[in-house]
Write a protein that binds this DNA or RNA. Structure first.
Length: 216
DNA sequence: GCGACAG
DNA sequence: ATCTTGTCGC
């Protein structure tokens, strides 16, 4: 069992070497997809909401149901959710410029959060947005709405802690793949409206749960 | 050794 | 994440 984890660690480290944190997404940016999952006993409902950028109008919504085969293990989330997200991305008809994934990107102990994992496997630009911290260090939390402070891991900047909504806990943003550090924050901020999470993710989260309740 | 630990 | 009622606050 420990050997099993060792193999997965090596995969993460190998994938981390493939990550490119430069702005190689299409410009001007016109389509962003938020991807999130909801769970039932033995399956996952995965939702993608593609919105126009920067107007954020819904362009295409889609859900898929898939089986889960890997448990949730902190730092190994990509092996649980990654395959389903890749399946969703590969099934979309619209050409999406950047994917926002509900997870961390490079702000990960092995530099391989689920957003980075998905980006490398699909070679699509990705940004990771999480509601809580995993391994980053930061000096203090931003207090003013809209403000962000860098977060570090082993001495280098790997993302941001962003006060996305006045009376909510801050969120954690980190580039996944084919997106730079600054752009990951800028794009995320441009997608903020009335919720703590950026619109693509807020809508994908809501859609996944609506679909889950519908099929139950 | 102990605690912490995305979803 | 999920299982769950009411409840406090914007």
């Amino acid at each position: 069992m420990e050997e099993r984890i060792d193999v997965l660690r090596k995969i993460q480290i190998a994938l981390s070497l493939e990550i490119v944190n430069e702005d190689l997404f299409k410009k001007p940016l016109t389509k962003i997809s938020g991807v999130d999952l909801a769970f039932t006993r033995q399956e996952a409902i995965i939702a993608s909401v593609i919105v126009s950028y920067p107007s954020l109008d819904d362009l295409e919504v889609k859900t898929l149901v898939t089986e889960l085969n890997f448990p949730y293990v902190p730092t190994l989330l990509c092996f649980r959710e990654g395959p389903a997200i890749v399946k969703m991305i590969n099934s979309l008809r619209s050409k999406v410029d950047v994917f926002m994934i509900n997870s961390h990107g490079i702000a990960h102990p092995f530099i391989c959060g689920c957003a980075s994992y998905v980006g490398v496997l699909t070679q699509k630009p990705t940004i990771g947005v999480a509601s809580s911290n995993l391994c980053s260090k930061y000096d203090y939390k931003p207090q003013e709405e809209g403000k962000a402070l860098p977060v570090y891991y082993e001495g280098r900047t790997v993302g941001w802690i962003l006060k996305s909504k006045a009376k909510s806990r801050p969120i954690f943003v980190s580039p996944g793949h084919l997106v730079g550090l600054d752009s990951s924050l800028r794009i995320t901020k441009e997608c903020l409206r009335d919720h703590k999470l950026p619109e693509p993710l807020f809508r994908a989260h809501r859609l996944a749960n609506e679909e889950k309740n519908r099929i139950l």
